[in-house]
Design a protein around this nucleic acid. Sequence first.
RNA 1: GGCUGCGUAGCUCAACUGGAUAGAGCACUUGACUACGAAUCAAGAGGUUUCAGGUUCGAAUCCUGACGCGGUCACCA
Length: 615
Amino acid sequence: MKALPELLETGVRDALRHLYGPDASEQEITLQSTRKEFEGEFTVVTFPLTRLAKKKPEVIAEEIGARLKETLEEVKDFNVIKGFLNLVIADRYWMDFLLQSGVREGFGHVAGGKDKVVVEFASPNTNKPLHLGHIRNILLGWSTSKLLEATGHDVVRVQIINNRGIAICKSMLAWQRYGNGAVPEKAGVKADHFVGDYYIKFEQHFQEEYKAWQKSDEAAAILEEKNKKDLSPADFWKGYKNTYFNENSDLGRAAKEMLLRWEDGEPETVALWNRMNDWVYEGFDETYERLGVSFDKNYYESETYLLGKDMIDAGLDKGVFYRKEDGSVFVDLTDAKLDQKAILRADGTSLYITQDLGTARLRYDDFGAKRMVYTVGDEQNYHFQVLFEILKRLEEPYADGLFHLSYGMVDLPTGRMKSREGTVVDADDLMDEVIQEAYQSSLERESTSELSDTERREIIQKIGMAALKFQIIKVGPQKRMIFDPKESVDLQGQTGPYVQNAYVRTRAVWRKAGQRDLSQAAGYTQLEPAERELISLLYAYPGLLNDAAANYDPSMVAMYCYELAKNLHKFWHDVSILGADTEAAVAFRLYLCQAVGNVLKSGMGILGIEMPERM
RNA sequence: GGCUGCGUAGCUCAACUGGAUAGAGCACUUGACUACGAAUCAAGAGGUUUCAGGUUCGAAUCCUGACGCGGUCACCA
């Protein structure tokens, strides 16, 4: 069975040659799918052909249409509206497609054989629990990795855990001072939240200390000396906070000393650091598991933060970098419309970007992948431009396969999430909330009443998570999105549960069908409009996965699943399946339901959304 | 200020990468369960695609400018 787009395109080309002469070989042909308000499945746009044919677009369309209908058995009919030639595909073609290939499980997935690609996502800091922003990152990274896998890539999922630095030291210090030896289990708090609470405790004590200090003589002198812009004292102190932390604060000094002790490898500090990080990892793992994601390898910043220095030397030898008099190393990217960028401090210690150079190399050594995808927010667009440009100049073997999967921040209806204002939406709380909502909603229904409590609980989990995930993934990655927690628990309309419901229907009808002679399906002769619509959508699925993967855009898959579910619901409403006139129709429609169910399950699976058998 | 991204129905988002009368959902109004599952379907209303020019058969999409909102411009991460 030949693929339609290619078939039609060569058909059109032949028609052009036949009608308008040999020049037609060079002509570009625009073929698109027909808008649903018109009859047909494929459309040829004939405006661009006027130069070649020297006729009006409508005439050209008529002539090509007639020719195609004559020469291609796959073209049943055509109609012309202005410069658009709409082609109606023969029922036989659609029916053969469905009965031969559409039912297979795994339809649309490519077996493999394409590049290996490393996908990084999540990459949290270990001083605080995960929040809504991480959820978008994780869902985007995960679904993109699944999408790449479905289109034949060999995918390695990694995260880099930022487990060192001043932030975790704040938590450690606060626990040491105010914790009285408390542990998460006894406190009855999820372990990562437990550690996060000490981070907050540190900030509170720090604020108190800062406020008290502002009344001191030392503070008065500083205000006198440094407030050059004549700000109000309150405004001045607002801007001075960081300097205070670094220069005047006792707590700040203590935290920085702890970081130094950690860097020296002082056993007691390292032990405490290990202990608290282990708590956080434990908490993260729980959250990841609930989200249904996992990693092939974790990188820890504590093990990678010194990497990259050897690449500096190589870059200096190559003349890609240059050393300043004070010993610092820079790269000049002004000819690539970027700036001059420091990549090594004067004291020889590395920077964020040095580390990233090193981990890129490390990953290549670990996996030999020539493609790497970084799922990181768009606030770091510039950083990745610089990083990739440097790797290119260093002529790293994977330099051409780097991609920054950039995504917009998540805002609340009230504006940005601000940890200082306590508006951060916690990941675990949010999941609890959507599942609770799904539970409430299930109480109003009888459809699962004969199932056990465990089964019902599983279903409710799937529904709640589907609502949350779909809500986030359906938005294109680049777009900054507004997330309304109230909407995320919607179970109707353009939502995850709506798609699940379509799937459940395809399963329900099969349960009810009992034993049927399915071979009768081949005897079905004429398609209903809703059936044509469904089959042509199914037909487009493999191409859609390819487009989505090429664009690193899982939202395309989400929109497709919604569209397919919507058409299934309409089909369900319009035609009777088990009550159809002939056994052929019953069998054919059962096949169709199965095919739609398979594709829905496959597509939603790529998004990390599970399909229940009932709901 | 330099660079950069965005601006589409009251709200949240689409628009096959330049194609037809700019589409969905939510909210609002109305109709459909004795039917294979109503977490559904159908209908109504809702728009000068921020504005002004330009490119062409054709622009939400490309170019120029204005306005508005982000991001980023560290020997921080």
